[in-house]
């Protein structure tokens, strides 16, 4: 029997929200210890319709609706994880992580260390992150950098449906707590996804567009914007930009990032989080320490300004980095 090669692989078109459902279902079919809980996730299939059908397939023992109790949701996931289950907990909007940050940052992240490694927390906290839906400042934040700052948490943010399936599977199988940031603006976007079981690897960045002149590092919804900007830069001024999808903030794929930046000598980070202490600041600091000699010019950070996100369409669009802003920043630096 001939092995299925990548080119022969059959593919299905699906949205990122469908990919989330597929990823959870794939892992729940494989492993009885995987359970899923959150607000409106079972009967209603999630407020973003990212989990429909799971209750029907796996039943109410494994797919559980919870009260509006974020501390109880992640606390229950933590207690279950330390006693033999592999829970997936949904926090409806990543902004609500602030409501249960004690459990995430003080209990889940630290208890393994504080107990000298006596307990483990194999759990995933999935959450809808980011702006673009005109929800205002309490339902639109990009908070992946909050999580990145806490030792003991792994932090992942996919930009495609295939990555959502594969990285979610990797997160569920990982023995450590993973915060899984799904960008809500990407939920309705359609992608081609290979059929069959997908399992990716945490801590791996991916070069999604080759280029010679500069390296754009982007995450989640900033990746498609960076790709649009790269095409525009090529068409309008002949700048050939490489685009790297960072995918995972912790562990951080410093090898791929350093090599990709060293090849062009010019780095641009595109971050949806507000300016101060965004992930790009950490990456830029790392690059200047470790590959200073390979840099041909100062690093450029494109972020939202250091403000809460406004609601009105025109204001929100002008606040979050756009393809146009990326094009302008790169053009200014390179021409």
């Amino acid at each position: 029997m001939a092995e299925l090669t990548r080119t022969e692989m059959t593919r299905t078109e699906m949205t990122l929200r469908d990919a989330v459902t597929r990823g959870i279902a794939q892992e729940m079919r494989r492993d009885e210890s995987v359970v899923f809980l959150g607000e409106d996730v079972a009967s209603a299939g999630g407020v973003f319709k990212a989990t429909p059908g799971l209750l029907a397939e796996f039943g109410p023992r494994r797919v559980r609706d919870t009260p509006i109790s974020e501390q109880a949701i992640v606390g229950a996931a933590a207690g279950a994880a330390m006693t033999g289950l592999r829970p997936i907990a949904e926090i409806m909007f990543s902004d609500f992580l602030a409501v249960c940050w004690d459990i995430v940052a003080n209990q889940i992240a630290k208890t393994r260390y504080m107990t000298g490694g006596q307990v483990t927390f194999p759990l995933v906290i999935r959450t809808a992150n980011g702006g673009g839906l005109r929800f205002g400042a309490q339902h639109s934040q990009s908070v992946e950098n909050w999580a990145m700052a806490v030792p003991g948490l792994k932090v992942v943010a996919p930009s495609t449906a295939a990555d959502a399936v594969g990285l979610l599977a990797a997160a569920v199988r990982d023995p450590d707590p993973v915060l899984f940031f799904e960008h809500k603006a990407l939920y309705p976007v359609r992608f081609e996804v290979p059929d069959g079981e997908l399992v990716d690897e945490l801590g791996t960045a991916k070069i999604v567009r080759e280029g010679r002149d500069c390296t754009i590092l982007a995450l989640a919804a900033m990746v498609p914007k960076a790709l649009v900007a790269a095409d525009e830069l090529a068409a309008s001024v002949g700048i050939d930009a490489m685009v790297v999808d960072v995918r995972s903030l912790v562990p951080l794929d410093t090898r791929t990032i350093c090599e990709a930046v060293a090849r062009t000598g010019m780095v641009v980070t595109v971050e949806e989080n507000p300016r101060l202490c965004g992930w790009g600041a950490e990456v830029v600091s790392l690059l200047t320490e470790e590959i200073w000699a390979d840099l041909d010019g100062p690093p450029i950070r494109i972020t939202t300004p250091h403000v809460p996100l406004p609601s009105a369409a025109e204001l929100e669009d002008a606040t979050i980095p756009s393809a146009t802003r990326i094009v302008e920043a790169v053009r200014k630096a390179l021409t």
Binding site: G75, G79, A80, D102, I103, N106
Partner: peptide, 18 residues
Amino acid sequence: IVGAHLTLAAGAAWSAQY
């Protein structure tokens, strides 16, 4: 952190129940 671990105990109980 006062009170946090009540939620973890509930989670362990959920694991036992499951």
